[in-house]
C-alpha cells in the first residue's frame, strides 16, 4: 500500500529524513514514533505529497512519486484521509459542512452526501453536534469531526499526525477506539505520535524515527 525506498528529504541543509526504506501493507495499523523533530510529520507530508523527496522513491497505492503529475495529486489525495493535531477545520462552517466539503470536492451528489455525513458522524458519536460550529466544540469533539471528515470519502489510507497531542486521557482513549474501528473496516492507518502509551501492549507495528533515521521497525 505504501512503500518508501531510500527516501531522503532535506530542508535547507537540515536532513529531515535520511535514506528511509519501509513498506506498509493494506489494512495495517502502524505507529510512527520518535522525539520532536525526528521526522514524523515530514514522513506523513511525503505520503500526502505536500513535500517531494529529494532522493529515493515513494509508492502509494500504485502511484509512483517519480512519475506523478501535479494535476494527479488531488486524485491521489482523495485516497488518503488526513487527521491533524491542529484539526484544520473551517471555522465559518458548521460540523455538517466541514465534513460534507470532503465529498463536495469529489463531486458527490448532495443527497448521497447527507447520508454519508450522518454515517461518519455516527461513527465518531457526534450526531447531536451536526449544526454546531468548531469554536462551540471541545478539543476532543473537534478532533472527532476531523476524523469524520477524513473517513467520509472512504480513503484506503488514513494518516494521523499527533491526533491526540492536544487531548486529555479520556478523549485520547475515545479517539483511539475510533481509529481501531476504522482499521477494523480495512483502512490502512499510519499514526504518528510521540506518546508511547498509545501503542504499548497493543502488539501493533511501530516505526521509530530519530534525527531523520529509521532506528527501529518492530511489531505488527
Amino acid at each position: 500500500m505504501i512503500a518508501f525506498s531510500e527516501v531522503t528529504k532535506v530542508y535547507e541543509n537540515i536532513t529531515a529524513l535520511r535514506k528511509i526504506t519501509f513498506s506498509i501493507g493494506k489494512g495495517e495499523f502502524c505507529f510512527i514514533t520518535g522525539p520532536s523533530g525526528a521526522g514524523k510529520s515530514t514522513l506523513l507530508k511525503l505520503i500526502y505529497l505536500a513535500e517531494k523527496p529529494d532522493e529515493g522513491r515513494i509508492n502509494i497505492a500504485g502511484w509512483d512519486s517519480d512519475r506523478l503529475k501535479m494535476s494527479s495529486i488531488p486524485y491521489l489525495r482523495r485516497n488518503i484521509g488526513i487527521v491533524f493535531q491542529d484539526f484544520k477545520l473551517l471555522s465559518n462552517r458548521n460540523v455538517y459542512d466541514n465534513i460534507a466539503i470532503a465529498l463536495r470536492i469529489r463531486g458527490v451528489p448532495e443527497r448521497e452526501i447527507k447520508d454519508r455525513v450522518h454515517e461518519a458522524l455516527k461513527l465518531v458519536n457526534l450526531r447531536h453536534k451536526v449544526d454546531s460550529y468548531p469554536d462551540m466544540l471541545s478539543g476532543g469533539e473537534q478532533q472527532r469531526v476531523t476524523i469524520a471528515r477524513a473517513i467520509v470519502g472512504d480513503p484506503t489510507v488514513l494518516l494521523a499526525d499527533e491526533p491526540t497531542g492536544n487531548l486529555d486521557v479520556d478523549n485520547t482513549a475515545g479517539i483511539m477506539r475510533i481509529f481501531r474501528e476504522i482499521n477494523a473496516k480495512g483502512t490502512t492507518i499510519l499514526f504518528a505520535t510521540h506518546n508511547k502509551e498509545l501503542f504499548r501492549h497493543t502488539g501493533l507495528r511501530v516505526l521509530t524515527l530519530d534525527g531523520g533515521n529509521l532506528v527501529s521497525d518492530v511489531g505488527g
Binding site: 489525495r77 484544520k88 473551517l90 470536492i105 471528515r149
Partner: peptide
C-alpha cells in the same frame, strides 16, 4: 487557509 484545507482534501485546481 481554507484553500490549503481544500487542497489537502483532494480539491482540483479547477475546484
Amino acid at each position: 487557509e481554507e484553500i490549503e484545507i481544500f487542497k489537502l482534501l483532494g480539491a482540483t485546481g479547477g475546484f
